[in-house]
């Protein structure tokens, strides 16, 4: 019994020592043959920090992520805020939608979890104003457009608000703009052709469109793309980011495909693996 116990302990220690030793010399992409680790909405959905909070984002960067993906919505008075869900009630002490409320109301919102902690909703302006080493980091802004009808004026308001924040903080070089809505990206490209736009779609549905629009690249669920397709995108000059990576195995699977960046929910693990 004792021998079995010692063997098991030794075996697990051996496994834990060797778990991150992965040869990355096979990586070929458009980012200097290095895969850039991004935190998904900060530290990811399994962290005790609520996603898209200042604490979660700062923690991901402090761990060593080179960037973070964050979800962006716009308030009624055109303030861009970091929030994922369509409605506020599940995650916070407020009801309703972000776009129905002014910033002074959203600014009072408290995340419900964890109990006793009282983390708060952050604006994009506050993020860029206060985050450490922002010029050494990348921010992938995933615009959540929950309103069902999107008149041109609404699109314009969104992008004007974004451009204002980027100009104020000189962050245009440090952001990716993600959206799955073609008219939104097309309008932004028209307004600011220098921005790095990522079309959020499965490879087969979005590759030709992204190539024809000469966007920076695509952001794609890991489970819907293989290494050959990523190679094809690279040949076409498109960067590929992968998301939907909740487990260590999914992260390893994503690495094997040589994407340009990975948005992970296992930030520390991915950073450790890619450090080599």
């Amino acid at each position: 019994m004792k021998t079995i116990f010692i063997t098991l302990i030794s075996f697990s220690l051996l496994l834990s020592c060797g778990k991150n030793n992965i040869d990355l010399s096979f990586v070929e992409n458009l980012s200097g043959n290095k895969i850039v680790p991004f935190g998904h909405a900060g530290m990811g959905i399994s962290s005790q920090f609520p996603i898209n909070t200042f604490e979660s984002i700062q923690c991901a960067l402090a761990i060593g992520a080179k960037g973070v993906e964050v979800d962006i919505q716009m308030t009624k008075d055109s303030v861009l805020v970091l929030f994922h869900d369509k409605t506020l009630q599940e995650q916070t002490n407020l009801d309703g939608m972000i776009y129905e409320k002014n910033w002074n109301e959203i600014n009072q919102a408290i995340y419900k979890n964890p109990p006793f902690a009282e983390y708060r909703i952050l604006s994009l302006n506050q993020l860029f104003k206060n985050i450490e080493n922002k010029k050494e980091s990348m921010f992938s802004l995933d615009f959540k457009l929950h309103e069902s009808n999107h008149p041109d004026e609404y699109i314009l308001k969104h992008w004007n608000a974004l451009i204002k924040v980027l100009n104020n903080h000189d962050m245009a070089e440090n952001v990716f703009i993600e959206s799955r809505r073609k008219p939104y990206l097309e309008k932004l490209q028209e307004m600011r052709p220098d921005l790095k736009l990522l079309f959020l779609e499965e490879f087969e549905k979005g590759f030709e469109y992204t190539k024809s629009m000469n966007y920076y690249g695509m952001i794609i669920p890991n489970s819907t793309i293989d290494a050959e397709q990523i190679k094809e995108a690279h040949h076409a000059g498109l960067r590929i980011g992968l998301f939907g990576l909740l487990t260590k195995n999914e992260n390893l699977d994503a690495i094997q495909k040589s994407p340009d960046f990975i948005q992970t929910d296992k930030v520390k693990y991915l950073v450790d693996v890619l450090k080599q």
Binding site: F54, E55, F116, E118, R120, Q126, K129, N130
Partner: peptide
Amino acid sequence: QTISSIVKASNNFNSKTRRNSMS
């Protein structure tokens, strides 16, 4: 009572603060 001592960003996110509170 639950005494909580939580480290978080300050209200304007420009510093780190420890909030001690009771519930």
